[in-house]
Structure formats: structure tokens, C-alpha cells
């Protein structure tokens, strides 16, 4: 009987841990919003964080989106050949990159790069008492460490995502012309066929929530790190896993709320 219940217990424990993590990140995110009035603390750190979180993430985001665009064009052509006019490749690449793969793949890649980086940095500060030191020097650590990171995530994620979408579509376009029997005019015709400016807003809204999630979860796991190097390692891993899970849940949530 107990061996039968073991997997259920494991799933329950995992769900409980995930919910606790979401709750903690939510609390910290609320504190970060409350700390917005302390501009003197977070203001000087906003631009450096925008650079670290956004600008430095551009290469990995572009690498992923470029190959995604190539594969999308090839798979669309493989699926549609003989059934549907090939200019639909442009429609499929554009729509899929804008609505789904651009935001989600970039969000997942950045949860690894940005979320892990934030959790490790703040976690190390926690276990070496640097956060306590900040407090004893009369600094609000949430305003000083969390607010600029969450704000930078909210501002920079949509920018990186929109750049990724553009590169993904451009890669699909190039692939269509170079490897498939599709002209530039046909690709653009397909691209424009189902294009709706709202789609870009949809991608931007999703990306803002992904940015807030990745940074708030990274900060939260960093803040609650216990122990030494092992604790920092665990916090980093969990930050990536939990923020990736939340990204996928949010992806479904926004599709249900904004597209249905």
C-alpha cells in the first residue's frame, strides 16, 4: 500500500513546493512594487540591470530564434506540399513565431540565463551575509536588489522577444528562398495574409509577464537560499525549473484569456 502511495506523495510534495515557491515569489514581487517609491535605491541600478538582463541575452535569443525560423520554414513546406499553396509557409512561420515560439522559447532560454544568474548572485549574497550587511547599513534589500531586476526584466524581455521574432521570421524567409521553391513575394504574401497587429501586442504582454516571472522567481530563490555552495546550487536549479514551469502555465493562460 505504502509503495503504491509513494509516487502520489512525491507528486504532492513537488506540487506543494512549487506552490510555496510561487507564493514566495509573489510576496517578493509585491514588496518590489511597494519599493518603487524608493527611487534613490533602485534608480542607479536599473540601466546596468537592463544591460545584463536584456542586451547580454540578445545573442542566445537570436541564435535560438534563427534556427527555429529555419526549421519552421522547412517543416511547413514538408507539411503543406501538394495540399496547400506554398505561400502559406510565410503565414505559418510568421504566426507561429509571433504568437508562440518567439515569446516561449526566448522566455525559456532567458529563464536559464537570467533566472539562474540572479538566483546564484543573490543566493551567494545571502549565504555570505551581504544581504544582512545591506540591512545593517540601512538599505532596503528589496528596493536595492529586487526592484531594479524585476523592472529590467519587465522592460527588456519584450524587446528581446520582438527582436527574436523578427530574426526568426527573417531566417524562415531566407530559408524559403534558398532551400524551398518559394519566392520572396510569395513568402511575404503568406506572411501578410493572417497578420494582425494585435498579435505583436499579445507577444509583448506575454513577454512582460515572463520577464517579471523569471526575475521575481530568481530573486525569491536567491533571497531564501540556505546553507553554503550547495544551497546556492539548489536555489539556482529550482529557480530555472519553477520559472520555466510558470512560463508554460502563463503561456496557456494568456492564450485562453486573450485569444479565445
Amino acid at each position: 500500500m505504502s509503495s503504491f502511495l509513494a509516487p502520489i506523495r512525491m507528486v504532492g510534495r513537488g506540487a506543494l513546493q512549487a506552490l510555496t515557491a510561487v507564493g514566495r515569489a509573489g510576496y517578493l514581487g509585491t514588496d518590489a512594487v511597494r519599493a518603487l517609491r524608493k527611487v534613490d535605491l533602485w534608480g542607479p541600478h536599473l540601466v546596468p540591470q537592463m544591460s545584463r538582463i536584456g542586451v547580454e541575452s540578445v545573442p542566445i535569443a537570436l541564435f535560438i530564434s534563427m534556427f527555429t525560423g529555419v526549421v519552421l520554414a522547412l517543416q511547413a513546406s514538408y507539411t503543406l506540399t501538394g495540399q496547400v499553396p506554398l505561400y502559406f509557409v510565410g503565414a505559418l512561420v510568421g504566426k507561429t513565431m509571433i504568437l508562440e515560439l518567439g515569446p516561449v522559447l526566448t522566455g525559456l532560454a532567458l529563464s536559464g540565463r537570467v533566472g539562474a544568474n540572479i538566483a546564484a548572485e543573490i543566493g551567494t549574497m545571502r549565504v555570505t551575509e551581504q544581504i544582512d550587511a545591506l540591512e545593517t547599513l540601512a538599505y532596503d534589500p528589496v528596493a536595492y536588489l529586487v526592484t531594479p531586476r524585476v523592472l529590467a526584466g519587465a522592460i527588456m524581455f519584450p524587446m528581446v522577444v520582438i527582436l527574436s521574432i523578427a530574426i526568426g521570421i527573417a531566417a524562415g524567409w531566407g530559408t524559403s528562398m534558398a532551400l524551398l521553391d518559394i519566392t520572396s513575394t510569395e513568402f511575404i504574401k503568406g506572411l501578410r495574409l493572417f497578420f494582425d497587429p494585435w498579435d505583436i501586442q499579445f507577444a509583448a504582454i506575454k513577454s512582460i509577464t515572463f520577464g517579471v516571472t523569471v526575475t521575481a522567481v530568481g530573486c525569491s530563490f536567491g533571497f531564501h537560499t540556505r546553507g553554503g555552495a550547495e544551497g546556492v546550487g539548489q536555489a539556482t536549479t529550482r529557480a530555472v525549473v519553477i520559472s520555466s514551469m510558470i512560463i508554460l502555465v502563463l503561456d496557456a493562460f494568456w492564450a485562453a484569456v486573450l485569444l479565445s
Binding site: E129, Q130, D132, A133
Partner: peptide, 17 residues
């Protein structure tokens, strides 16, 4: 935070940034 401006704290491992 105001009180902490009257109290200095020296940490065991210095806790320098």
C-alpha cells in the same frame, strides 16, 4: 532602518560586497 544608522555591525566573515 533609522535605528541602524546608530549601530555598526562587524560580520564574522566581513560580508564585504
Amino acid at each position: 532602518y533609522r535605528l541602524r544608522q546608530r549601530v555598526g555591525y562587524v560580520f564574522q566573515f566581513a560580508a564585504l560586497f
